[in-house]
Design a protein around this nucleic acid. Structure first.
Lengths: 157, 157
DNA sequence: CCTATGCATTGATGTTCATCAAGAAATAAT
DNA sequence: ATTATTTCTTGATGAACATCAATGCATAGG
């Protein structure tokens, strides 16, 4: 478990890397994302303070996600082997599974507007720290679509 | 860890239940799913032989998923507390995280046709065991849309 | 055997969101 | 401060998929 400092824009991991590590964010903001075959980015997760950011690929297999820093960030880095040995935090693992389960259900059963409303409630602080197009990417829609949704929501008030 | 037998159609867990358990499938087939506010079902996961089926909610919180049996099924049941005490199978947990990560990426970056093709490759045996409308529900599309996709794919050959 | 129920398919139409293009506004760079 | 770059917005058009309705097929129960 080594503590490191990274600058905004630093890339910690690229898709295809074999030695994918686990990053515990102390301060700042990371993100993980994929790039599809049309070159389009899809944000998989934001990693603010106290979040664990990692690719879930098995040890010694190529990973799927890019990970980079959206702000100057302080992180603790560990290998998966290390974590498995010392016995990981099971409560944190369960919480992560729950987060992913919610995300899947959300993607399958809600339209863009509902997903956005849920996101603003669940991650109110993230919205102010990243450009809207990244929120759109996280929600699985285009920036244009998100712009229209916000427009519509603000009129209603 | 108690072994039990359930008949096709048996319901093991309902959305909102507090004491959600963990089910290890020995033979047969389970599924977990939600019902959205319009009454529409969304299959979250199929659970064939050797799969672990569970709601990822934290202990003593209301769960989100229904779980029932699509075939006569033999399962080992445990509470989450039990599993946490005896130290869960970390490799299996990591594999599950990987599966969910793939699912999310798939839902965000692929259209219905690609998701279907991926599904047929990844779970070839499930397709033959469940009605198509359930595959559609898992993929996040309507049975009509899946019917048209299959139609189109068969013409190409 | 006959009927009731669920399943798969097909066609017609509608909604949601993506794509393309252009311009305004904000942010960063020199 | 000025320019360059990114971000956000708005409009027009199109594609993907949903919805609604009707029909044929299979399967299960009586």
């Amino acid at each position: 478990m080594k503590k490191i400092n990274v600058k905004k824009g630093a890339v910690l991991q690229r898709k295809g890397d074999i030695s994918s590590k686990v990053y515990l964010v102390e301060s700042g903001l990371l993100r993980s994302y994929t790039i599809d075959d049309k070159g389009k980015e899809h944000i998989y997760m934001f990693g603010p303070e106290n979040w664990l950011v990692a690719d879930s690929c098995e040890p010694n297999t190529p990973c799927q996600l890019f990970i980079d820093a959206l702000e100057d960030t302080i992180i603790n880095v560990a290998t998966k082997e290390e974590l498995l040995k010392e016995g990981p935090d099971l409560t944190a693992l369960l919480r992560r599974l729950d987060t992913m389960q919610n995300r899947i259900i959300m993607l399958m059963s809600s339209n863009a507007k509902k997903r956005y409303e849920h996101f603003t409630k669940t991650y109110p602080n993230i919205i102010q720290r990243v450009p809207l197009k990244m929120v759109a990417s996280y929600l699985g829609i285009t920036p244009e679509a998100l712009s229209r949704i916000r427009n519509e929501l603000s009129k209603k008030k």
